[in-house]
Design a binder for these strands. Structure first.
Lengths: 142, 142
DNA sequence: TAAAAGATGATAAAAGTTATCCTTCAATAA
DNA sequence: TTATTGAAGGATAACTTTTATCATCTTTTA
């Protein structure tokens, strides 16, 4: 069992061209086993139980590495400072995955059709906030 | 002209039950006139040109106030710490506007139909990231 | 197995945001 | 219009999150 996990993590690292370290493997396994969208601090707390000497910096560095390698994905493109909408029209955003440029796009222009207003778990829809992730024209050319 | 702006800002404040201050008005006008999704620091820099003595704290306090009053809207519900996806299925998020709880929802469950893969400005769509903002069942009852 | 490249850990520093506290201003009522 | 009172502003400390630095240690690979 342990052998299997180790083997598959080695393979994963080989595929993404990153070195296999103990910290990295434990971090990966812990994150993989977590529900929802834990913060780096939450991940750190869990990993520390298995590797008490691990540094928070290592957790951050490897979360970034995993995201950059495509092993995990960032939940949101917006996690820096608070950003406010000044465009009061109903609109969404086109976010360039390379240069991070954000451009507004109107609801109709996007051509998106929200259907239900009650979702699983009884969730009541107020509005949609859509980020279209892709490449802006400039970055397509580059 | 100035009179008109002032008058309408007074009305806006009255509607939202907040006091009219000089800083608040300039901040509102500056933000209203800005393109895109400026950060508090960027707003601060611009406001400072008109009210040099303004404090960064005032800018933050009033951005929050404007958002809480519904005068402006936060661009994203996710701007705290970095969050990572461990759910590798194609999915989106239901975000409770009251308790901020985030629940995953599958693409089909959401019943969303992305249509085009080329958008205005030549933007090339890679994927959609949808946040459904609304009320979870618990918060509907409360 | 040794050298080179890369990763880790400790910690300082930066960035972004909030809290504190005192001063000043705006709303309201006399 | 002015006095009063509660709210808002300004300066700055503190806190949170994240990144940078650098010496040491571990992987990789030749």
């Amino acid at each position: 069992m342990q052998q299997t996990t180790t083997t598959s993590f080695r393979k994963l690292c080989a595929e993404h061209g990153i070195a296999v370290t103990h910290q990295r493997q434990v971090l990966y396994e812990v994150m993989h086993g977590m529900e929802g969208h834990p913060s780096p601090e939450e991940v750190y707390a869990k990993v520390k139980k298995k590797v008490p000497a691990i540094s928070l910096a290592t957790v951050y560095k490897n979360i970034h590495l995993f995201v950059e390698s495509g092993i995990f994905r960032k939940m949101s493109m917006h996690h820096g400072s608070v950003r406010v909408e000044m465009n009061s029209e109903a609109h969404h955003h086109m976010v360039c995955s390379r240069c991070k440029a954000i451009t507004d796009i109107g609801e109709e222009e996007l051509g998106l059709a929200p259907s239900r207003n009650k979702l699983p778990g009884g969730f009541l829809v107020e509005r949609y906030s859509v980020d279209v992730i892709g490449l802006c024209e400039k970055c397509q050319q580059a």
